[in-house]
Computed example of a mutant assay.
Amino acid sequence: MPLSSMTGFARQQGGNEAQSWTWELRSVNGRGLDLRLRLPPGTEGVEAPARALLSKQLRRGSVTCNLQVATVAQGVSYRINRPLLAELAALASEVAADVEAAPPRLDGLLALRGVLEPVEPEPSQDREAVERALLADLQQAADSLVAARRAEGDRLTVVLGELIDRIEELVTAAAAAAVQRQARQRDRLREQVSQLLDAGTPVPEERLAQELAMLAVKADIAEEIDRLKAHVAQARGHLAADAPVGRELDFLAQEFNREANTLCSKANDLDLTRIGLDLKLAIDRLREQVQNVE
């Protein structure tokens, strides 16, 4: 399964002789799968199957599903409200007996509100057939959304791969810098001990050995380097996995950051500190990108 993003958009149009509709799906980052359906009145029957359909194809993301339905324009027919027309004609006759006025004309009566009523066309399909058609179009929209998220996932795969390569490069540089730092620390300590001896200050051998051991323990970053290398291998395994790995990559990015912080705190060396800061920058960029992985 290729890597998928949680960002995407899809639209699908459909309809029959009486109605037209449009599905729109928008997906952004989310900790889990959050489905928000906006359906017009009269389509409540598709909500449950629509949720099931989307839940089957999507694992993570905040997804807004919007359905718009419009009535197809058709020839409008009218009918006369005969009871109302008769009542109005009778009232007109009563008034005509009291005042001098011309009798009402038919066109005038028909123009009165409510005398002519539009006749709504009968639906040509039953509700179940319309719901099946709606869900079929939603399926196509969901397929398009999955394709859009995977296309974005392909781009993310390249970006994440480059960042992991950069992290591995910096880890290798940190290991080499640690070896050079050890030599510099040894030379610096010898110089300090020599200055003490020249000043006539006695330095017990046991005390000197203890200081050397403490410096070595405090400055040792071998475990951090080993864990960072293991995280790099694990990250590459996630990118090649046949399953959604967004949560795993997010957790791994946190572990990367933890080891980089420890490395920087133990650096005590300009070159190693610079590498550690570059490493933290690359890890921060990795964390930003994995937030969008399904």
Results as ranks from 00 to 15, higher is better:
Val46Arg: 07
Ala48Met: 11
Pro49Trp: 03
Pro49Tyr: 13
Arg51Leu: 10
Ala52Leu: 15
Leu53Met: 12
Leu53Ile: 12
Lys56Phe: 07
Lys56Ile: 00
Lys56Asn: 11
Gln57Glu: 15
Gln57Leu: 04
Arg59Asp: 07
Ser62Asn: 12
Ser62Asp: 12
Val63Trp: 03
Val63Gln: 04
Cys65Ile: 12
Cys65Asp: 01
Asn66His: 11
Asn66Glu: 07
Val69Met: 13
Val69Glu: 10
Val69Lys: 04
Ala70Cys: 02
Thr71Phe: 01
Val72Arg: 07
Val72Glu: 08
Val72Gly: 02
Ala73His: 09
Ala73Phe: 09
Gln74Val: 11
Val76Cys: 06
Val76Ile: 10
Ser77Trp: 10
Arg79Pro: 00
Ile80Val: 06
Pro83Val: 01
Leu84Gln: 06
Leu85Gly: 05
Leu85Asn: 15
Ala86Ser: 08
Glu87Ala: 09
Ala89Asp: 09
Leu91Glu: 14
Ala92Thr: 04
Ser93Gln: 15
Glu94Asn: 08
Val95Pro: 04
Val95Tyr: 14
Val95Gln: 07
Ala96Met: 06
Ala96Glu: 12
Ala97Tyr: 00
Ala97Lys: 13
Asp98Gly: 10
Asp98Ala: 11
Ala101Gly: 10
Ala101Met: 15
Ala102Leu: 12
Pro103Asn: 01
Pro104Tyr: 05
Pro104Gln: 04
Asp107Trp: 02
Gly108Gln: 11
Ala111Arg: 08
Arg113His: 07
Gly114Asp: 06
Val115Asp: 02
Val115Asn: 04
Glu117Met: 11
Glu120Cys: 02
Pro123Arg: 02
Asp126Tyr: 01
Asp126Gly: 08
Glu128Thr: 13
Ala129Glu: 12
Ala129Lys: 13
Ala129Pro: 00
Ala133Met: 09
Leu134Cys: 10
Leu135Met: 03
Ala136Gly: 14
Leu138Ser: 04
Leu138Phe: 14
Ala141Trp: 06
Ala142His: 05
Asp143Cys: 05
Ser144Tyr: 00
Arg149Asn: 02
Arg149Trp: 05
Arg150Cys: 14
Ala151Arg: 07
Glu152Gly: 08
Gly153Val: 01
Gly153Trp: 03
Arg155Thr: 08
Leu156Cys: 00
Leu156Ile: 05
Val158Gln: 15
Val159Pro: 01
Val159Trp: 05
Gly161Thr: 13
Arg166His: 10
Ile167Trp: 02
Glu169Tyr: 03
Thr172Gln: 08
Ala175Val: 13
Ala175Gln: 06
Ala177Ser: 13
Ala177Thr: 04
Ala178Cys: 01
Val179Phe: 01
Gln180Met: 11
Gln180Glu: 15
Arg181Gly: 05
Arg181Trp: 05
Gln182Tyr: 04
Gln182Asp: 06
Gln185Met: 10
Arg188Ile: 01
Leu189Arg: 15
Leu189Lys: 00
